[in-house]
Computed example of a mutant assay.
Amino acid sequence: MFAYNNTEVVIMTIRDRGVMKWQFAFGHPELIKGQRDLWRDQERMNKPIIDEDQAEEFDLRIQYATEYNHAVKLTVWNDGFTSVITGRVHYVDPITHELRIEVKAGEFERVAFDSVVGVKVVD
Score class of each variant (00 low, 15 high):
Met1Gly: 09
Met1Ile: 12
Phe2Gly: 04
Phe2Asp: 08
Ala3Ile: 15
Asn6Met: 01
Thr7Ala: 11
Thr7Gln: 15
Val10His: 06
Ile11Ala: 08
Ile11Thr: 06
Ile11Trp: 04
Met12Ser: 03
Met12Val: 05
Thr13Trp: 03
Thr13Ile: 04
Ile14Ala: 14
Arg15Trp: 03
Asp16Ala: 10
Arg17Cys: 00
Gly18Ala: 12
Val19Lys: 07
Val19Trp: 09
Val19Ala: 14
Met20Ala: 15
Met20Leu: 15
Phe24Ser: 07
Phe24Asp: 07
Phe24Thr: 08
Ala25Arg: 09
Ala25Cys: 06
Phe26Glu: 03
Phe26Ile: 13
Gly27Arg: 00
His28Val: 08
His28Lys: 12
Pro29Trp: 11
Glu30Met: 03
Glu30His: 07
Leu31Gln: 09
Leu31Trp: 09
Ile32Asp: 06
Ile32Leu: 14
Lys33Asp: 09
Lys33Ser: 12
Leu38Asn: 06
Leu38Arg: 10
Trp39Lys: 09
Trp39Gln: 12
Asp41Met: 11
Gln42Ser: 10
Glu43Leu: 15
Glu43Ser: 11
Glu43Met: 15
Pro48Tyr: 02
Ile49Asp: 09
Ile49Tyr: 07
Asp51Glu: 05
Glu52Thr: 13
Glu52Gln: 13
Asp53Thr: 15
Gln54Val: 07
Gln54Pro: 01
Ala55Cys: 00
Ala55Leu: 08
Glu56Trp: 05
Glu57Lys: 13
Phe58Met: 10
Asp59Ala: 12
Gln63Phe: 04
Gln63Glu: 05
Ala65Phe: 02
Thr66Tyr: 15
Thr66Pro: 01
Thr66Phe: 14
Glu67Cys: 00
Glu67Arg: 15
Tyr68His: 08
Asn69Met: 08
Asn69Gln: 14
His70Ser: 02
His70Thr: 02
His70Gly: 03
His70Tyr: 13
Ala71Cys: 06
Val72Trp: 02
Leu74Lys: 09
Trp77Lys: 00
Trp77Asn: 02
Asn78Ile: 01
Asp79Glu: 15
Asp79Asn: 14
Gly80Glu: 08
Phe81Pro: 00
Thr82Leu: 01
Thr82Phe: 01
Ser83Lys: 15
Ser83Glu: 14
Val84Lys: 05
Thr86Asn: 06
Thr86Asp: 00
Gly87Trp: 01
Gly87Lys: 02
Arg88Thr: 10
Arg88Phe: 05
Val89Ala: 01
His90Tyr: 14
His90Gln: 09
Tyr91Ala: 07
Val92Pro: 01
Val92Glu: 04
Val92Ser: 05
Asp93His: 06
Asp93Asn: 15
Asp93Val: 10
Pro94Val: 08
Ile95Ser: 13
Ile95Leu: 14
Ile95Trp: 09
Thr96Asp: 11
Thr96Lys: 12
His97Lys: 13
His97Met: 08
Glu98Gln: 13
Glu98Pro: 01
Arg100Ser: 04
Arg100Gln: 12
Arg100Met: 07
Arg100Leu: 11
Glu102Trp: 03
Glu102Asn: 04
Lys104Phe: 13
Lys104Asn: 15
Glu107Met: 13
Phe108Met: 04
Phe108Trp: 03
Phe108Asp: 00
Glu109Leu: 08
Phe113Asp: 03
Asp114Gln: 10
Asp114Val: 11
Asp114Pro: 01
Ser115Gly: 04
Ser115Glu: 14
Val116Glu: 05
Val116Met: 06
Val117Pro: 00
Val117Met: 03
Val119Thr: 06
Lys120Asp: 14
Lys120Phe: 04
Val121Gly: 07
Val122Met: 03
Val122Phe: 01
Asp123Pro: 13
Asp123Leu: 09
Asp123Ile: 05
